[in-house]
Each structure stands twice: as structure tokens, then as C-alpha cells.
Write a protein that binds this DNA or RNA. Structure first.
Lengths: 351, 351
DNA sequence: GTGAAAGCGCTAACAA
DNA sequence: TTGTTAGCGCTTTCAC
């Protein structure tokens, strides 16, 4: 369990000057070599790399940032890290960024505008090259700070009328239509919807798409069967209980996100109902865990990888080509239905 | 959904010189004011802050780092971000760090030494003020790079013999003993253990503590009932199935972590066994989700908040007081049993 | 108490 | 192709 660590080297760390001296070139040549400038001859380049290796030299990113103005740091702001959707999104974003030589700075706002303001400030201080705002249509006023200073930003489901801002549109419609169609094919016609908080733009979109999908399936939307929850597990429990208190009960429940669906699982279990025999449940997100619930959750997948990719691409485009008026400013991420074990035909005699 | 963003200000961002000019003081005074130096008179301090506010000035952290040598960035390296334990740990660590004016850099290694090497390098390039290595006793050779350059580091369950390194010891023993005692009190005496991968130091410690606890409860440890899994949900499923294939089956299963326990839930369900009526299950970690499994998971809590706090404190201590030979070099984080719904008395006739 | 000035390690313009 | 040099924005002696 214990091991001897090697000794420190003498004195200070090697800097670009030390490398230059060791390679017998100027510091400019070292800089060019590191940055892959084509102007350096093979002969010198080889000497420089050798010196770098030998001295175990690492460039100082802060010095680099100071002079170049680019930090190669990207910020990502999410609303709530306890929803597994977000760590998964961050993970994807980080993978892409790191592979491209960027570092990322993560912040979660917990839906608190004051916190969001601090986030924006921290990112500004660290001179981020761009910020992905993945709060899905919540408070955006503080973002003016960023826009104002010309930092490229990309927002999920929110349009900012600024040349430095782009938007990722989520096509929930496709997935939600597929979900309703799936339920109809199984024989359901009493379908409830547990919505997300109306303070979230994305939650409202999802709810609207549900209504539209029901309509196009020729099904009525019962007012009492559309309940505003809060995208948490507890909210799902509460939503189910509220539904249970009603004179009539649906045969299927579509949820605005997976955590809500998992809450429904839990409430149904406590209520003695079985999924999917007594009630079919569909989530939205397809968090990693959805595959492992009991039973596995049928859900509408919103690919984190795609979302992260779109966010990264948008930021890169802005950064590379600051003043191109005809740059792509909107990106679309689609959704799709993943059928697992939480949906089945309704019982002949539905209560 | 769309709103007008405010216009950019003219020209470049305000720097320390602009503030100095606006406040009619020298840049040194501005610097002192920002850094809370006691040498600045109230009169000037007030003028400076006013100028800062008015210009909406933000100090450039890179310039600051370059000259001071301190970046106020802390690194945290975890093994696997898909285990919810780690996002929760990172979250805690970040909260503490941000509250103290630090930024954090996150990396996950996925147990790949090459990735770990890259992590170390990235952190070095960004001049982190310290690194928390939360890989729980995995590969450590690459850390020499960090130690070598004098970066304070703190490790979970691994001792490095270097003045810049400290260690967080996890006291699993207390929690595991409580778990066994709890099971014995319920009437269990056939207890299996689904261990973590033996490549992990912490997994071995947990397994040993299980054996010790069993022994001190006067219970035999059946060799076939201690199975090496891999700390994933799938591993838990496999472990359960392996146990099921044996001629005799325990009445209770203690798992090396919560994900394994959740896998056991799933496998038991598919096998037609009910938790806790047919089999009692105990996890370890107490991830947020443990409260919401069906039934809620009885588990041994390893507080992420405490762990994060210890890691942060260790790093701070090293950074503040670089050459104090009698500094605290070991921190202890304890565990405790949280009884929920996955444990109950065994059936009269256990198979 | 306050200010002037010397860099921190690097990139990029300009010279050669 | 390569080298020289002027800063990037800030902290920190060192004088006053």
C-alpha cells in the first residue's frame, strides 16, 4: 500500500528558455515547434522535441492564454447535477472537448439565478473560449454578461438574438409521437402525462408535443390527466398519487423525463400495482439507469452524446469563424423511442 | 423564446490599468485592494471598488496565475463516472472548492493508466494547486509526475511516501461490522459477500473487513459465498446468478457497493425471489439512488461530503504550509449502517 | 500608505 | 527558415 516516491528535481521547472538553450535554438523556434508551425525545419524540430522530452517540459497554459487570448477552456452550465442525465451529458461533452485539446469548467445552477450569475462570472474570469448553457430554457438574463463580452455561447432550446449565440433545438416531437403510437398499438386509449415544471421551456414543449401526438392519434387529452410535476423522482411519486386520487385512472402514463417515470414505478409498487401489467409507463431521456429499472424502462431517448456533440460543434464554429454572418446558428437533436419492459397491452378490465 | 441581447461595449475589456485610471490610483493599489491587502487606506479602497463596479472589471486569472504561481485550480481524478458515487463526490468537492474560490478540473480514468497519465499531464499544464486522486487504490505510478513537480496530492486509501502527499483512510470496518450485527439480530447466519474487483485496493479492504466481521459474529465464511464481482450493476447480476447455481444459497447478501446490490435486486427479481422476504441485501456507498430502489436499499453509508471535505482540507493544508514536517498526513472517513427496506428476518425455511 | 518598475512564460510581429 | 523583441495583465519587491 505504500511506495517510495521519486525525488524532486533541483530548482525550478524547465521553461521555454531552458528548452531553447538545450536545443540550441531561439525560444521562437521552440514555440513554433510546439504549435506545429510549418516553418520549422525538420532538423531543428527534431532537436527541439528531443530537448522537450529530455527536460520533461510542459508548456504553461496560463502564459499561453495571456498572450494569445485563447484559453482552450470551455464552460458547461447545467441546472441540476443530481439528475443522472446531466453527469452523462457532461461526461460526453468532456470526452469530446478533451479529445480536441480543450479543458472544461463545469457549473450547476440548481435553478438559482444568483448561482448562475456566479457561474458566468467564474467562466469570464477564467477566460473560457465558449459556454454551453444546458439549462433547457431557464433564466437567461445573466447570460448577457457573457454575450456582452463576446464569448460564444450555445443554448439548449433557447434563442438569443446575438451573432455569438447559437441554439440547439430538441425534436421531442418525433419520439413522443412514436411513444403514443406504440401505446395505441398495444391497445391503450387512456393515457396520462406527467409534465415537467412549467418554468422550464423544454417541459412545456414536451407537454405540447404530447397533446399534439394524442390529437393526431385521435385520442382525447383529459385535463386532469396532465399533471405538472418537477422532473424529480419524488415529483413522479406525487404525480402518480394525484392521478390515483382521481375518479378514473389511465392505463398508461407518459412522463416528461425518466426520473419522473422511476418515481411512478415506486409509487405504483407501493400502491400494489404492477408495471406493466396494471399500468404502462414511458419515460424520456433514456438515462443509463433506464435499462436497469425493474422492469426496464420503455423511454424516449434523447442522446447525450449527440447533444454534447452539437454543443461542442456550435462553440467551435463560433470560435473559429467569429464574424461569419452565414454560419450555422441552429442545431437539431432528435429523439427516438426505445421499447423495453415497462409497456404492455392494458388489462381487459382497466379500472 | 427569443430575446434581444444587449450590445457589446466598445473596444476591449477593462484591465487593471483602466481601473487604476478611473480611480486615480496606481495599478499596485488596485491589485492590493482586490487582494484585500491591509495596507490600503479606506479612502482609496472605496474609490477602487467603485471604479471596479463601474467598469464591470474582472481580474484575469491567467495573468494572476502567471505571476503568483498559484492558479486556484484543484484537480480531481476519479475512476469511473458512470457509477453515481463519483458524480456525487465531484459535486461535493466542487461545492467546497467553489465556495473557497477555487475552480476544479475533473478527469475520469476508466481504470486506464494511459488515460491517467494524460490526466496528470493536463493538470500539470494547467498548474493545479493540488490533485485529489479518488481512484481508491488503483494504478499510481503515473502520479510520480505530480509528486515530482511538487504538486500536493491526496489519495484515497493509498499511501505515497512523500511530504506532498497525504492519504484518506476509509474506515469500512465500522459500517461492515454494524451490517453483520444487523443481519445476525434479524436471525441470519448464512451470509454471502459479493466483492469488488481485486485490482482495487478498497475492494480487498472491504472483503477483509467482511471476513473479520463474520468471524467476530461467530459466523463461518463459506468460500463459495465470497464472489469477486466488478462493482457494476451487471457484475451484481452475474454474482447473484453464480450464487444461485450453488447447491446451497444464503439468506442474506452483503455487497461491496450499491451498484452491485442493485444488480442483485434485478437478478433476484428475474429469478422470482423477493427482497427482503426471500433474500436480504445490503449495499455499500449509499448513493442518492439507494433511497429509491424497490425496496429502498439498506446500505453502509460512505459520506461523499465527508470524503470531499477531507480531500479538500488535505490539499489546502499542503498548499498553505508547504514545508511543515508535522502536518496532518492522514485523514479518516468513517462509515455507518443505514437501515432501509432490503433487510428482514429470513424465512423460517431458508432453501 | 502609495507608486514605479521588474518580470511571470509565452506568442506573434517584425527583421534578418 | 530562424531569431529578436515587445508585450499579454497581473503581483510584488523596492523606494518614497
Amino acid at each position: 500500500m505504500a511506495r517510495k516516491a521519486s525525488r524532486k528535481t533541483s530548482g525550478k521547472l524547465p521553461d521555454i528558455r531552458a528548452v531553447a538553450a538545450a536545443a540550441k535554438v531561439s525560444i521562437a523556434t521552440v514555440s513554433r515547434t510546439i504549435n506545429g508551425s510549418p516553418l520549422v525545419s525538420d532538423r531543428l524540430s527534431k532537436r527541439v522535441w528531443q530537448a522537450i522530452k529530455q527536460l520533461n517540459y510542459l508548456p504553461n497554459t496560463h502564459a499561453r492564454t495571456l498572450v494569445s487570448g485563447r484559453s482552450r477552456i470551455l464552460g458547461i452550465i447545467v441546472e441540476n447535477i443530481t439528475n443522472p442525465f446531466f453527469p452523462e451529458l457532461i461526461q460526453s461533452f468532456e470526452e469530446i472537448a478533451v479529445a480536441r485539446g480543450f479543458e472544461i469548467l463545469v457549473s450547476s445552477t440548481n435553478s438559482d439565478p444568483a448561482v448562475l450569475a456566479m457561474c458566468a462570472r467564474r467562466m469570464l474570469e477564467r477566460k473560457v473560449d465558449g459556454v454551453a448553457v444546458m439549462t433547457f430554457g431557464e433564466e437567461e438574463s445573466v447570460l448577457d454578461q457573457l454575450v456582452h463580452r463576446g464569448v460564444p455561447i450555445v443554448l439548449a432550446e433557447f434563442k438569443l438574438d446575438d451573432p455569438k449565440a447559437s441554439t440547439i433545438l430538441l425534436d421531442y416531437s418525433t419520439g413522443i409521437h412514436a411513444a403514443i403510437r406504440h401505446l395505441v398499438e398495444l391497445g391503450h386509449n387512456s393515457i396520462a402525462f406527467l409534465a415537467g415544471p412549467h418554468s422550464l421551456h423544454s417541459a412545456i414543449t414536451r407537454e405540447n408535443d404530447f397533446r399534439t401526438a394524442m390529437r393526431s392519434a385521435g385520442l382525447p387529452v383529459q385535463k386532469k390527466w396532465v399533471i405538472e410535476c418537477d422532473h424529480t423522482l419524488k415529483g413522479g411519486v406525487a404525480g402518480f398519487e394525484q392521478l390515483r386520487g382521481l375518479p378514473s385512472f389511465p392505463t398508461a402514463i407518459v412522463c416528461s423525463n425518466d426520473m419522473t417515470a422511476i418515481g411512478v414505478f415506486r409509487a405504483a409498487y407501493m400502491d400494489g400495482m404492477r408495471v406493466p401489467q396494471d399500468i404502462s409507463v414511458i419515460g424520456l431521456d433514456d438515462i443509463d439507469f433506464a435499462e436497469f429499472t425493474l422492469p426496464p424502462l420503455t423511454t424516449i431517448r434523447l442522446s447525450r452524446a449527440e447533444l454534447a456533440k452539437a454543443a461542442f460543434d456550435a462553440l467551435r464554429a463560433q470560435a473559429e469563424d467569429p464574424d461569419n454572418p452565414k454560419m450555422q446558428r441552429e442545431y437539431l437533436v432528435s429523439t427516438s423511442l426505445v421499447v423495453r419492459g415497462s409497456t404492455a397491452a392494458p388489462r381487459a378490465a382497466a379500472s
